[in-house]
Design a protein around this nucleic acid. Structure first.
Length: 447
RNA sequence: UGGGAGAUCGUUCAACGGCAGGACUACGGACUCUGACUCCGUCAAUCAAGGUUCGAAUCCUUGUCUCCCAGCCA
């Protein structure tokens, strides 16, 4: 229904424009870059559908799956496995293009030396506490570090020593030399590398310095020749830095475009808080059906189609807001109505005896498995003199709008006959324990 | 109060100087061998004030409100 005509949005408008202007040799290449520090939730699904959706809709379009694994103390293989499984389940494919930021560590390191050589980065001896204090505030400019004017040679030596493990964790960092007075906090000499002795899920103990997001992410996009790097609103302030690094390095420059992340009413979509629910044992794991994770929704019975449909329907814009979770449920019902096999069950049974139905007779009546889809076939239901209906489906004194069974009233038994209630049998306590009814042999239903 | 971004029915997305439209929700009604589905209908919006224009949600000015940024997280 909706899958045919993909809704336009401002990002696709930009891509169309770029294509028209012959940018990127006509290529469209996106990427979904999760950090493997938790399970994917429905908010991520919006981004996945956006990125993979664009790749699918444009001729020759590609979308990479890239793990942004630059912080070894939070990242685990369990998470990368779950992420791969969830994206596949959602219905997307990245071909051979499964990448890891950690695969680029050597290149990033070389680029860092290049930046140092250009006089655009320096090793700082300040503690994190001191750096924080000297960064200034939103309204006051920061102060320059005493380390800021070291020579290129000294910076190079210090940086190589950092990599060689000659300094303790946290004792030094590599910083970009930009502008401590910038009104954009991200440009006040941002940290590029920190010393961190932690075993990385892929590179093991090869490194004791790790790149920071701002330094790493643009490089990852550039290396993969991503044309349009889509991310959420909070990275808007980071774009000048993203552009600065790539420009100073004189490397391929993707275009970062920000869009509003998904918010759903009554739903927690914060990785940090979901992690807390798991770690503190408030839920039975990331795939607890009460969790808004893709694995939780999957266990709960949500279909990939319904989640993709939601992603299509919420649209893409820059305005931040909260989507009504009723829309998600609507998408699910729509999909399930089309595909789910029907069945009947009685939760709170009330016995019905058909006084004019032959004793001992059993009729097998056909019932369609899905009225929306004949190809799903039929099943046979036994029909006998004694059967059970839902207690709520009978009322001795029915109000006006009640159109189920009542004394003297005739109703259709699904897949079977019309029956008429002739008597409600009560026990000593006055409770209805059985219904005497007659059936009309001429009204046989079923399909 | 420094910088960045955003304001359109209750919610969400559209309209790109030319009749403010769709979806979800809610509420009516029709239908019903699932009180489902489906169908029909109703309510309902351009943040404010000026300006430009034959014509403004759209352009300009001023103001208001909301969100983001002071991690060696991403």
């Amino acid at each position: 229904m909706t899958s045919e005509k993909q809704a336009k949005n401002f990002i696709r408008d930009i891509i169309d424009e770029d294509l028209k202007n012959g940018k990127n040799e006509g290529r469209v290449h996106t990427r979904f870059p999760p950090e493997p520090n938790g399970y994917l939730h429905i908010g991520h699904a919006k981004s996945i559908c956006l990125n993979f959706g664009i790749a699918k809709d444009y001729a020759g379009g590609l979308c990479n799956l890239r793990f942004d694994d630059t912080n070894p103390i939070k990242e685990e293989d369990e998470y990368v496995n779950s992420i791969i499984e969830d994206i596949r389940w959602l219905g997307f494919d990245w071909g051979e293009r499964l990448y890891y930021a950690s695969d680029y560590f050597d290149r990033m390191y070389a680029l860092a030396e290049q930046l140092i050589t250009a006089g655009k980065a320096y090793v700082d001896d300040l503690s994190s506490e001191e750096i924080r204090k000297m960064r200034g505030t939103l309204t006051e400019p920061g102060k320059e570090s005493p380390s800021r004017n070291r020579s290129v040679a000294e910076n190079l030596e210090l940086f190589r020593n950092m990599r060689a493990g000659k300094y303790p964790d946290g004792s030094r960092v590599l910083r970009a030399k930009i502008d401590m007075a910038s009104p954009n906090m991200n440009l006040r000499d941002p940290v590029m590398y920190r010393i961190l002795r932690a075993t990385h899920h892929r590179t093991g103990d090869k490194w004791c310095i790790y790149p920071m997001y701002d330094w790493a992410h643009g490089l990852e996009d550039s290396i993969e020749k991503i044309t349009h790097s889509l991310c959420t609103l909070e990275f808007e302030d980071h774009r000048p830095l993203y552009d600065w690094f790539l420009k100073e390095l004189n490397v391929y420059r993707p275009r970062q475009i920000e869009f509003a992340p998904l918010n759903l009413s009554y739903t927690v979509l914060s990785k940090r808080k979901l992690l807390q629910l798991v770690e503190e044992g408030h839920v039975n794991g990331w795939d607890d059906p009460r969790m808004p994770t893709l694995s939780g929704l999957r266990r709960r019975g949500f279909t990939p189609e319904s989640i993709r449909e939601l992603a299509d329907r919420v649209g893409i814009a820059k305005r931040d807001g909260v989507n009504d979770i009723a829309l998600l449920f609507h998408c699910l019902r729509e999909d399930l109505n089309r595909k789910a096999q029907r069945a009947m069950a009685v939760l709170n049974p009330l016995k019905v005896t058909l006084t004019n139905y032959p004793e001992g007779q059993v009729e097998m009546l056909p019932a369609e498995n899905n009225p929306e889809d004949e190809s799903m076939g039929k099943r046979m239901l036994p029909f006998t003199r004694e059967l059970y209906i839902e207690r709520d489906d009978f009322l001795e004194n029915p109000p006006r709008k009640f159109f189920r069974l009542a004394p003297g009233r005739e109703v259709r038994l699904k897949h079977a006959y019309y029956i008429t209630c002739t008597e409600a049998v009560k026990n000593d306590a006055g409770e209805i324990v059985e219904l005497k009814c007659t059936y009309d042999p001429a009204t046989k239903g079923g399909w």
